[in-house]
């Protein structure tokens, strides 16, 4: 059934090359977007928990704005609107960027900043779940606010939220498909293109679906490994609040073993 993927395309490649090139863009977008998101997410998440208003209010605004506008709309804002509202010299420079990158960079920025707002909320939940005594002990030892966050709070909070970050990893690679609306030929776009070129819709979408399932499996397994690697010896995982715990479990559940069964 997947034979058509190995047929020649009009441009002398095989259809599977289209798919693989799409996968490449998807992975690049997800990978680099993730690190942007993680970096900003941790900073903003910490900002949500500090007393200082000059940090807490911008952090809160960041989360509110980026979490409450659909990814697709944000994609359009970065792609269509951003070059128009910055000084025209910069805007013109942006418009000079050649094709795949002209879509890639706005998509990267969009997914990175959007996912950061979601990670920030996870980080905040992780920090708020820590026992109060940890901060008191750090204070009693004379650690400053920065040192307390750097060495005591953030390392523990990040360990706590590894399971719920799994869903953010899966979220960002799924959201890469939104980049097709601004012309990036990522995996879903390539599948659609193959379907239109060959009329083998079932094969084209089927192949893309299987690739996405594999990515889900890899993401899940990878996060399990990380969870195991950073688990503190001798300790049971600390529970988040019942409500957040349920949410984390919901996000985490269903990827696997269900994904395994589906792949059978």
């Amino acid at each position: 059934m997947f034979g058509v993927l190995f047929e020649q395309t009009a441009d002398g490649q095989r259809y599977i090359d289209w798919l693989l090139s799409g996968l490449g863009w998807t992975l690049a977008l997800a990978f680099f977007g993730w690190w942007i998101a993680f970096g900003i997410g941790v900073v903003v998440g910490v900002g949500r928990t500090v007393q200082n208003r000059f940090l807490a209010i911008p952090a809160r605004l960041y989360v509110e704005i980026f979490r409450n506008i659909p990814v697709l709309v944000q994609m359009f804002l970065w792609y269509f609107v951003f070059p128009e509202v910055v000084p025209s010299a910069l805007g013109d420079a942006i418009k000079q960027i050649p094709p795949p990158w002209a879509s890639f960079f706005p998509a990267l920025l969009c997914l990175g900043l959007y996912t950061a707002s979601r990670i920030a909320e996870q980080v905040r939940a992780g920090i708020e779940a820590l026992p109060r005594g940890q901060i008191e002990a750090a204070n009693a030892l004379g650690l400053s606010g920065y040192l307390t966050y750097r060495y005591v709070i953030v390392p523990q909070a990040l360990r706590l939220i590894v399971p719920s970050l799994t869903s953010e990893v899966m979220g960002i690679y799924k959201n890469t498909s939104v980049a097709l609306t601004i012309g990036l030929m990522e995996l879903t776009a390539q599948a659609r293109q193959i379907s239109e070129a060959t009329f083998q819709t079932f094969t084209a979408f089927g192949a893309a679906t299987i690739i996405y399932l594999c990515l889900a499996l890899i993401a899940y397994q990878g996060m399990m490994l990380i969870d195991k690697a950073v688990r503190i010896p001798g300790s049971a995982p600390v529970k988040l609040s019942a409500d957040a715990d349920l949410a984390a479990e919901v996000q985490q559940a269903g990827a696997l073993p269900n994904a395994l069964e589906a792949a059978k």
Binding site: K174, G254, A255, N258, A259
Partner: peptide, 12 residues
Amino acid sequence: YVAVIRSIPLIL
């Protein structure tokens, strides 16, 4: 069904 739906993008 649930696993597949949750693993692939809504656009797909």
